[in-house]
């Protein structure tokens, strides 16, 4: 790791203003992704602001009948929360499908939203990567791209978004609550939080410099049957090749979000609208505009088959 200085923030406002005012500052929460990247010198912060002690570790109901999840709530605690298990089971399931027990004990809600891609070209500092070094090119376009995205990609970047949790939050229409460097507060719809790579794949989310995620807010529960199906190379402790989050209502309507295939957690209105027509129709709608490589074209069929399996299991 490159040398850095370390401080503990005393309040969320102080954390945000310090981050904006300090060259090369980064927040550190669970650290499971950031420290990994710092050891590889992919991330080289000059200063770390520890945001673990700001009282952001609570889960509480909102006045609107939803749920507010503090940004420092650990993945284990969120998945095990009684209300989440009962009313937002797809979120519990997505969290439990990710990482290992040790990592879930550390990883946070806010940090999970900000985790970087697992594209091997992002991780290999000898290779060009527009996300790691803007303008250096993309090693993945003509490289080994089996694990990478088929939707939302650009000529500058075909990295996949790695999170399971964020797929469930996208399905649930969560809001990301943040405090700015000037102390102002705002909520960002999850649909607008993660950005497509376009020409600027190094800009991954809508946060402004210094802005700190304080909580994630879920709307009122959807009811229905919750499913999170993850397909991967091992049965445990591996990133998704394809994952599908779904909530089925009694009347045949459903909503879907996808992981492993998109440059960000993937959801389309057309796929939701196709729900009553069955798995094949949902797959076709979800995969419209896919730009697969020779290595990851299989993800289209795998998505369709994963959906078919979900429909079969629920007896629809």
């Amino acid at each position: 790791m490159r040398p850095f200085t370390y401080s503990r923030a005393a309040s969320v406002e102080e954390a945000a203003s310090t981050a904006a005012a300090t060259q090369g500052a980064r927040f550190i929460a669970g650290g499971t992704n950031l420290l990994d990247l710092m050891k590889l010198q992919i991330e080289t912060p000059a200063h770390l602001i520890d945001v673990n002690h700001l009282g952001l570790d609570r889960i509480e109901p909102t006045a609107e009948g939803g749920l507010r999840i503090g940004a420092m709530v650990r993945n284990t605690d969120l998945a095990a929360d009684k209300v989440v298990r009962r009313d937002y089971a797809v979120l519990s399931r997505a969290l439990l499908a990710g990482a290992s027990g040790q990592l879930r004990n550390k990883a946070t809600t806010g940090g999970n939203l900000l985790q970087r891609t697992r594209c091997p070209y992002f991780y290999d500092t000898r290779m060009p990567c527009n996300k790691r070094v803007p303008g250096s090119g993309c090693g993945a376009l003509k490289g080994v791209s089996r694990s990478l995205a088929i939707l939302g990609t650009s000529d500058a970047c075909i990295a996949q978004h790695p999170s399971d949790m964020a797929v469930a939050l996208r399905l649930l229409d969560a809001q990301v609550d943040a405090v700015g460097a000037d102390g102002s507060r705002r909520s960002i719809p999850i649909a607008d939080f993660h950005l497509l790579p376009g020409e600027t794949p190094h800009i991954e989310n809508a946060l402004k410099p210094g802005e700190l995620i304080t909580s994630v807010t879920l709307p009122t529960p959807l009811g229905g049957t919750h499913v999170y199906r993850k397909v991967r190379d091992r049965t445990s402790y591996a990133f998704a090749l394809v994952s599908v989050a779904a909530v089925f209502a009694k009347d045949g309507q459903a909503r879907f979000a996808f992981g492993g295939i998109g440059a960000r957690p993937w959801r389309t209105d057309a796929a939701d609208a196709a729900a009553p027509s069955g798995a094949a129709a949902v797959a076709e709608a979800a995969l419209t505009g896919a730009r697969p490589t020779a290595h990851n074209a299989f993800k289209q069929q795998l998505t369709a088959r994963t959906l078919a399996s979900i429909y079969r299991q629920k007896g629809a």
Binding site: I28, T32, Q102, K106
Partner: peptide, 9 residues
């Protein structure tokens, strides 16, 4: 709680 001691400062 069990954690990976390599991924924490």
């Amino acid at each position: 709680r069990r954690i990976n001691s390599c991924l924490t400062l």
